[in-house]
Nucleic acid binder design. Sequence first.
DNA 1: CTTCACGCCCAAATCGTTTTGGGTTACGGT
DNA 2: ACCGTAACCCAAAACGATTTGGGCGTGAAG
Lengths: 351, 351
Amino acid sequence: MDYRVRMAARSGARVTIKDVAEAAGVSITTVSHALNDKGEVNAETRRRVRETAAALGYRPNRAAQDLRGTPRKSVALILPRTDGSPAEAELIGLDYYLEIASACAGAAFAGGNSLVFPPPLETAEEWAQMGLDGVIICDPSEEDPRIDVLESVGVPVVTIEPDAGRPDRPFYVRADTTASTVALLDHLKAAGARRIVLLWAESTWAWALETRAAYESWCWANGRGRLVTPVPLVALELSAYRATIALLDGEAPPDAVFASAERYSTGVLQACRERGLRVPEDILVVGGVDGSTARLSEPAITAVDPRPTRLGAAAIHMLLERIQGVAVTEPITVPSTINLRASSTRDPAEP
Amino acid sequence: MDYRVRMAARSGARVTIKDVAEAAGVSITTVSHALNDKGEVNAETRRRVRETAAALGYRPNRAAQDLRGTPRKSVALILPRTDGSPAEAELIGLDYYLEIASACAGAAFAGGNSLVFPPPLETAEEWAQMGLDGVIICDPSEEDPRIDVLESVGVPVVTIEPDAGRPDRPFYVRADTTASTVALLDHLKAAGARRIVLLWAESTWAWALETRAAYESWCWANGRGRLVTPVPLVALELSAYRATIALLDGEAPPDAVFASAERYSTGVLQACRERGLRVPEDILVVGGVDGSTARLSEPAITAVDPRPTRLGAAAIHMLLERIQGVAVTEPITVPSTINLRASSTRDPAEP
DNA sequence: CTTCACGCCCAAATCGTTTTGGGTTACGGT
DNA sequence: ACCGTAACCCAAAACGATTTGGGCGTGAAG
């Protein structure tokens, strides 16, 4: 047996179940049973088989397993591309997308499936060629054409955040932007803010639109004036800085700023500093999406954590259900949490 | 035949080559030959087979193909994780990593392989479980432990940018940071810059170290004083702003700024604006890494394009060679290009 | 002594494709 | 009539695993 072990290890050829069977002196059936805890195998035999398999470095051939049993599914994750929506992808930090990717990968692998990263493809033919079982599209554009192409060749699609152009399509997961926006505004109100301004990212992404709508209805419900300042999608920090300066220098300057995009907060803080306003003593600042910018700035910024890990996992689960033919009728909303930090907490006693 | 077509289309079961053969009234051998242009098949027969295959929606079973022929390889791409090197990943924009990912995916698929996105795994056991044939690690940390774990279970690893702790390991592709740094400095010199300051990202990534070394040797060769200003890895725009303000207010302020990280340039521009300096008339600004920030700011920033598309493709090719057992002895250096923009071009006649 | 159950193990079928090694027909040349 | 030769097609083997349906002893129950 030792000889066989050395031979197998030396040759470049893969070790098959047959090699293990011969080396252990049993049939391939017994090897399969021993390794998978299936049939009835003597404990001693099982041990011996496992040992020789390990010694030979045996790894079952995925293709053979797939051919025989239930094939693994391969699902693809598409992140916002630079050519598709150049500016908008910058609204949110790298953290967010990488965490989504990790979460999707983890959830997919937990079910024995694999998450592939597809090249940018155009035609239905190309997509069909790839043999994908499902696709997750992150932050789809309005009326995203990729959804039609894929669904037309029978590949189910689940999006993270809805497609703003398809309000009735239920195949998506999203953060509860409305709830977290309201919670953040309530928090600012409780901290004493009277005039809360929204630095709003001028985008058609569902997340941006929802933030604005939630802000406006909250202001209405609380009898406040609405102070929406649209911020262009270029030069994020600088645009936010300029907008904040203009607000602070204007009549009736705000005493709290809701910076909807992560990188806005940098510009806001700087504008406040230049105008001699201390954060949080003189003015409160909160962010719409958390990330390393908010975490690491000085002072650290209170921000909404959209829970990318849960979004990714939920998206994978919905997709696998659709692949299995389970009827999905409702979108999934993942509750966001709010990371309270120095930029909005005046009283140390506050939660 | 029409009946069969309807049956196959209706049932959920997959259409196999056998179904096509029966529907077309030929053997499965002929179907295979007809579809793959292999044996000798009558043109009319070939057409008929192709038609029925299309009508039935036949897609060859990947697992069966892999089992029979040369199996497809599956390679993984690991981007810098938030938990691994939090701050450094922010030095470069999302653009860069997504382009690398797309390029890797494209190059892998072109060879019939697939690019998977792995969850963060720890042990060699877990990695072996995944059945990967190779892994690409982007921006490894110093003495990156993942390299050891993977190579120890026989999975070849190629990195994008070298591991600063393993100078002799040749399995990497990199941008020619030294050459592009020198080219950028030469460009500034030609544009009339006398005192060029380097805003240097305080990082151990090979790219940052190389930028600094190239700057210092260039200064020495050109008989200039070295003005390296280390910038911390947090609050990128703000840190760069502060550093620039300090420089401009100091004695002998610079007349050109080399902002090594993409997002530095925002802070630099703002500092210049506040001090009443026009870019490029009064002071020149260039960036170490291009991206949407540099492209979209006002004025647009001249910056180095590290060619992520070529880096990704080259990494995949090197990895596939290693998987095939080809001996790789030399790293690959991808020439960067310089995107000249308004921030460093005084004379419209200049190239 | 037969029968049955049980514990342990194995041969063979199976998944869907590619490829090898012919087989059959038709036709033209001797 | 016989052979050779294209042209076209097909049966069967092979890939590596899982699973089905027994087979063979051994010991206990009838």
